[in-house]
Nucleic acid binder design. Sequence first.
DNA 1: TCATTGGCTATCA
DNA 2: CTGATAGCCAATG
Length: 110
Amino acid sequence: MEKRSKLELSGFRGKVLASVQLVPRGRVTTYGELARFLGCPKAARVIGQALKRNPRLERIPCHRVVRADGSLGGYVAGLERKKNLLIKEGVKIRGNKIVNFKKFLFQFGC
DNA sequence: TCATTGGCTATCA
DNA sequence: CTGATAGCCAATG
């Protein structure tokens, strides 16, 4: 085992954070897709934990991560904040869900 | 070991 | 279509 910097996080969290950073602006991903990409499709909940436990909120675009059905899910800084950011990126939102969500969905390995 | 969690799927109104 | 509800499952602390 190599020694890791303090900024490096343990397995799952680190993977999640790294993967989220791969999501370009104007696109969104889901916890489930992330989990599947990491190899644990059922670990979607842990993805959320990792995102909320991120080392730096500004560094991780957690606002680009939403639920599988397009609902915003949750956000440390408040759902309104997340909504606002997504709209700013060009995502249309109705209520607490994304319109044409699949259209903005970013898939890993594709 | 237990409790917690920013979820997922399925089902119903 | 939207929303509300019920089980499930896996990592973190």
